[in-house]
């Protein structure tokens, strides 16, 4: 059965870039959210079994989303995809329960490497 993947980013260009980077061999249904509030809502609806999450967003940022996931104990594996590559940012999101961190700009190789490393996507 296809896995529900949520791409949560305020930039439509970044959402498109992320969608293109999802390995074609991975069987998924892709959903989109334009900020953290929409993102948490989508995760509550089961659309975010795997979440590609941006950090800098209006309304609710990526840190807020991670806190909400933890507080409500939502079932989501979060991979943060961010341009904020400061060591501090990476440590903070990992401490908040993110599974992995990918530096923007995203591409298919980076996505595939993380997805297989963490066993999220099993190689056929």
């Amino acid at each position: 059965m296809a896995i529900n993947v949520l791409i949560c980013d305020d930039s439509s260009f970044a959402r498109k870039q992320m969608a293109r980077a999802i390995p074609p061999e991975w069987e998924v249904t892709v959903h989109f959210a334009g900020d953290g509030v929409e993102g948490v809502q989508a995760i509550r609806e089961g659309k975010g079994e795997v979440v590609f999450l941006d950090l800098t967003m209006p309304n609710m940022d990526g840190y807020g989303v991670l806190e909400a996931i933890r507080k409500e104990d939502l079932p989501a594996m979060v991979i943060v995809v961010s341009g904020d590559i400061q060591p501090d940012a990476q440590q903070r999101v990992m401490a908040l329960g993110a599974m992995a961190f990918i530096k923007k700009p995203i591409d298919a190789d980076k996505a595939r490497a993380v997805l297989t490393d963490y066993g999220i996507m099993v190689r056929a």
Binding site: S11, S12, F13, A14, Q17, T56, S82, G83, D84, I85, Q86, P87, D88, K104, P105
Partner: peptide
């Protein structure tokens, strides 16, 4: 939107160096 996103990535790299 595209300019913002490109800038977002570039300023993140700059911020990392400053940090």
């Amino acid at each position: 939107d595209c300019y913002q996103e490109l800038t977002n990535v570039a300023m993140g790299q700059a911020a990392d160096r400053l940090a």
